[in-house]
């Protein structure tokens, strides 16, 4: 812990302080304003949202960090994951547990495969033309959205019921909640820690972190960096799909949710600093909390839902004004 702190640049130390102060401020405001129980509920909601956003944003951040590609199709991956998972869940003839697991596995695998083909076939030939990569993912996102709409129709899908074990109720801050929400938070945390371990404790993680700085040098050491690129792209796509499927029992599936979460994820990645993993993790929670508190505030005082929707964009603008390369980005 101590070495972590001393190894930080002064800029990142300041960012940590800013984050701590800001979150403390949010908590204080909500406690003083909403009272203990409502504040607790709001914070819980915020963390939940943060975890969901993290699943999309971490992929975005990893891919951007290593490949320098801002993958706008990340939202579409979430969408495909959600719809395909929904489809698998309803077309299988088995117990709920099996269907649920199959939905997760099937959705994630399919999207991972799409990601692999997309990286190898479409993005790789464009490494010399970086702007075109961004634009290409933009176009592909539109195509994917169109495909999903064509196959599954415009109507929103109802939330599906998770296995009974996850469907039980528990009480938190005097509110009865489904265990499934805890499951989402747990999933988010597990992914957060899992990817952290992957990045910091394994050889492939060392290669990824080195590649973020200088892929050419990594290759000159005898490592096939392109293969690592593909792997990271697959990992990023799979995380987004996982987020999509996790969402379905919670709020169903709609065509809009891809872009909703994409915007949230972009905000998170920008706030956290492009390509910084810890930044993405911290910013996810911050954005989730901000959104939840703003929602609650506007509900109680202003009768202006627009406040909640614009709050995170304002947050992003504020952060960029203070720190033009995000909280934990590398200042150039």
């Amino acid at each position: 812990m101590q070495t972590y702190w001393t190894n930080l640049t002064p800029q990142h130390r300041r960012s940590w302080l800013l984050v701590v102060v800001y979150v403390a401020l949010l908590l204080a405001i909500s406690w003083l304003d909403f009272g203990y129980n409502t504040a607790g509920q709001t914070v819980f909601r915020g963390i939940l949202l943060g975890m969901l956003v993290f699943l999309v944003a971490s992929g975005l951040s990893l891919i951007f960090g290593l490949l320098d590609v801002l993958n706008f199709a990340q939202g579409a991956f979430l969408l495909i994951g959600a719809y395909v998972g929904y489809d698998i869940y309803h077309s299988l003839d088995a117990s709920v547990e099996v269907r649920f697991l199959a939905a997760i596995g099937g959705g994630v695998l399919l999207v991972a495969a799409i990601g692999a083909v997309m990286e190898a076939g479409l993005i790789r030939p464009l490494y010399e033309r970086p702007i075109f990569q961004i634009v290409l993912t933009f176009g592909l996102a539109a195509i994917f959205l169109d495909f999903v709409e064509r196959i599954y129709g415009r109507n929103p899908k109802q939330p599906l019921s998770p296995p009974p074990l996850l469907n039980e109720k528990f009480t938190l801050f005097q509110q009865s909640l489904s265990v499934y929400r805890l499951f989402i938070i747990g999933l988010g945390l597990a992914m957060m820690i899992g990817v952290y371990i992957l990045l910091n404790r394994t050889r492939i993680g060392i290669i990824i972190r080195a590649g973020v700085q200088d892929p050419e040098m990594v290759q000159a050491l005898g490592i096939n960096v392109r293969r690592v690129f593909t792997l990271v792209f697959i990992l990023g796509s799979a995380l987004a799909a996982l987020g999509g499927i996790a969402l379905v029992p919670y709020q169903g599936a709609t065509l809009e949710m891809g872009n909703q979460f994409l915007i949230l994820a972009i905000v998170v990645v920008v706030i956290g600093g492009m390509g910084s993993y810890e930044g993405t993790a911290v910013a996810s929670i911050v954005v989730g909390l901000t959104r939840a508190v703003a929602e609650q505030l506007s509900l109680e005082h202003f009768d202006a839902p627009v406040l909640a929707e614009t709050s995170i964009l304002l947050l992003m603008i504020a952060v960029l004004l203070v720190q033009p390369s995000g909280l934990f980005g590398r200042g150039e």
Binding site: I206, I207, R209, A210
Partner: peptide
Amino acid sequence: FRDLTVGENLLI
């Protein structure tokens, strides 16, 4: 690699 420790720089 600036973000990697000396050990990791060698291990890679």
